[in-house]
């Protein structure tokens, strides 16, 4: 969540929501959360586990590609 929230501060285009999976099992099921942290960007790009900043940014850019 740390990188996501810093991205939110850096750009007014970016919103970030931390979701506690056990308190919201329906959301966790809908997004097929098997391992955490799980990151889902624009419901298009997803990955599990902590990644470096450049890789996270790559996922963000991939999620908005063509939009």
């Amino acid at each position: 969540m740390r990188l996501a929230q810093h991205m939110s501060v850096a750009s007014d285009r970016v919103r970030s929501t931390a979701i506690e999976a056990t308190e919201f099992p329906e959301l966790a099921r809908a997004y097929q959360v098997m391992g955490v942290p799980k990151v889902v960007i624009n419901d298009r790009v997803q990955f599990e586990g902590a990644v470096p900043e450049t890789e996270f940014l790559g996922a963000v850019l991939q999620a908005v590609e063509g939009s």
Binding site: A4, V14, T17, T22, L27, V39, V40, I41, V64
Partner: peptide, 15 residues
């Protein structure tokens, strides 16, 4: 990030 032209919604699931 400043160059983004579309909105980005990031969800981070944790336990």
């Amino acid at each position: 990030l400043r160059a983004l032209t579309a909105d980005v919604e990031i969800k981070v699931f944790s336990t």
